[in-house]
Simulated scan of single mutants.
Amino acid sequence: MVFSGAQLMCFLGAVQALQLGIVALLRSEKPRANRWFAATVLLIGLLLAVAAPRFAVQPAEQPPYFWMHLWSSLSLLVSPLIYFYVRASVGVVRFRPVSLLHFLPATAHLSLLFPLVLMDAGTRAETVNFYMERELYRSIIPGLRIGAGLTFIYWIGCFWWVRRLEKHILATASFSDQRQIDWLKWFTSLLVVLLVMLALGRLLASDQVELVGVTCFALFLLILNISAMVRPELFHGIAADLQLPEPTPAETPKYEHSQLEQDEKQRIAQKCRDWFEREKPYLDEELTLARVSQALKVSRNELSQVLNETEASSFYDYVNDYRIAAAKGLLEDPTQDHLSIDGIALEVGFRSRSVFYTAFKKRTNTTPGAWRKQRGKIG
């Protein structure tokens, strides 16, 4: 049997998806998120396997209606799975009965096949031929159009949750997990582009667009596999200290209902400044709003409000301001010339060189190395 290049790409992608799905399921870190990730890539592999006959060297005049309809129905499941993967990655998410509504479009679309099952063989053949002659299998087109729309909506939903996570980190933690956040954005965006490309190829009856989409999917899965081997930490999920908590009324800041007077805000702000200057808690790379509020004996919401309104700063930036001030002192101190830039970053509480550089340049418009050299120090 001779396979076309496109079929080989479909099979390669399916194998890569199977391998990646098994690896994700075997990981002990963030099991809930990894299960959603595995379900997503395994479904993509199944879609590639189902699409392979379409690219045969000598394809049938028309693809079997059943397989085309099944492919379109299954494709409607990808976006919800991505959405639940992102939700499980950024924080606690419980799969409730109402969550099944996310899979209703795929179920409803698949149910359109049921009438064919109930028909006798002659009527079924007649009906399918009627669909095929008018290329109605492409419009499964309701399915493809609905799928493209849902993909865009879920993409917005995914980015909303990631953005909410970023705001939560700024408000409650002195450290970030930018690599994981960037990974979620990249993974989601690229999958959306590829899904839309396949949908357009089917809607426009363009084999070329479909072929490019299938090839890109296979390469995408290959890159994911390589990434899993080279940087397995990408699949560890957002650190537990940074994840969004289960929403509760007590954890929702509502400054408009706050009872804090201006004098009290100033008192808390001064108390916070005094404690930071005396105890230097910013040197702890895992400092959180919860720990500071506990030390100051004020609620997290009150402390967050004070920092936002009195200091005009998020907790993340507030702590980093102290870290940068400490870093400047080390960079300007000739007795600390033995410390490298990386050493100074770790010394003042930053987790990595890149985060230190970004924060330093944001506040000084120059790099740490340039700051040291400008004062006659050896870099």
Rank of each mutant, 00 (worst) to 15 (best):
R138V: 00
I140M: 14
F152P: 05
V50T: 14
W71M: 03
V117F: 12
V50M: 13
I140Y: 05
W67L: 12
G147T: 09
S111E: 03
Q62P: 00
F103E: 11
A60Q: 04
H69N: 14
P105M: 02
S139D: 14
M132K: 13
F114W: 12
F55W: 03
S99T: 02
A125Y: 06
R54I: 12
G122E: 12
S79W: 00
A60E: 15
R124T: 08
A125L: 07
T107M: 06
I141P: 08
P105W: 04
H102K: 12
T107P: 06
A52C: 02
P80F: 05
R54P: 01
R54S: 09
E61R: 05
A108I: 07
H102E: 04
P97T: 03
A52D: 10
H69Y: 07
A60W: 05
R138W: 03
E126M: 14
R124L: 07
E126G: 14
R124N: 13
R94V: 10
Y154G: 13
A52V: 01
G147A: 08
P105Q: 13
I141M: 15
E135C: 09
L77D: 00
Q58S: 04
S139W: 12
A121C: 10
R134S: 11
Y85S: 09
S111G: 06
S99E: 15
V78L: 09
E61G: 00
P64S: 08
A56H: 09
L76Y: 06
F130R: 10
P63M: 15
G147F: 01
Y65G: 00
F103R: 11
A148Q: 04
E135F: 12
R94F: 11
L76W: 04
A121M: 05
L118D: 07
V92Q: 14
S111K: 06
S73E: 09
A148S: 03
S139R: 15
G122K: 10
M132D: 10
L144F: 07
V86E: 14
L144C: 05
V92R: 10
M68P: 00
R145Y: 12
P97S: 10
S111H: 12
P63G: 00
S111I: 02
R124C: 09
E61N: 04
S75E: 04
R145I: 14
S75H: 08
L76M: 09
A51S: 10
V93H: 09
A121F: 12
Y85R: 15
G143Y: 08
A56C: 08
